[in-house]
Simulated assay, not measured.
Amino acid sequence: MVAAIPWADMAGVTLLRHDSDNPATAACSNARVIDIDADQYAADEGPCLEAARTNQIVSVRIDEVATRWPNFASAAAAIGVTSYLSAPLAVDSGHAGSLNLYGFDCEGFSDVDEVLVKMFVTSVEAAVWNSRHAAEARTEADGLREAMKTRGTIEQAKGILIAVRGISPEVAFAVLAEQSQRENVRVAVLAARVVNSAVSKAVGSH
């Protein structure tokens, strides 16, 4: 993106949770972006935060910073950035974000630059969405696999109780559930213990 927009020297992505006061820089093209963003987070104001919170594009020159964000102004003056352009990112229901450009030697980003940033925002949003849903899918798959393993162990434990006590499957599960509550352990943990105990006895009897 920095290569595509002539006056952009650095770029970064800010993410913040709607229920948190702790924004973070999720990605950047240069380590100095982290320092610039950190000054905005410390002041609780600045272009990246305003874009994320208002869902509006923010484009300012250094001479406007003192008026708009006085707490950030002193830090901004020492940074050397002369122009800021931040565009809001739609992440998910729990997060807001912004795509941020910083320029050292320009007199302000143009309307064309804003259009280009909007195009990049669409690509970034799609990438973030795909990444998050891929992670959710992996988590769900892991959960299903674990559930399948757990169910198999519980069924084995039920089978052992049925064989040893001569009870029905329903009663066998009720026995496991009652004992898990009494001992305050998960049914799956108790079932694994029953299975392991039966295996140990079977091995010891040979």
Rank of each mutant, 00 (worst) to 15 (best):
W129P: 00
H18Y: 10
I160D: 09
A147Q: 14
T139H: 06
L89N: 01
P169A: 11
I36D: 07
E178D: 13
A38I: 11
L16M: 15
R17N: 07
G103I: 10
V185K: 00
G103S: 13
T54Y: 07
D35N: 15
L99C: 05
Q56C: 08
A52C: 05
H206R: 15
S200A: 14
A96N: 11
G152T: 15
V13D: 10
G80P: 00
L144C: 04
N71G: 06
F173D: 05
D37V: 08
V124C: 04
F173P: 05
H95M: 12
A137G: 06
Y102M: 12
N184V: 09
R53G: 03
T14N: 12
R165M: 14
K201T: 13
V58F: 01
H18G: 02
L116H: 05
T67A: 14
V128R: 01
R165Q: 11
A38H: 09
P169G: 06
P70R: 11
V121P: 03
E64V: 03
H95F: 08
V124I: 11
N130H: 14
P70Q: 09
N71K: 15
G80C: 05
N100F: 07
A87M: 02
G152L: 12
I160E: 12
S98I: 01
V194Q: 04
L85F: 05
A87W: 01
T153Y: 02
G143N: 09
G159V: 04
S168N: 04
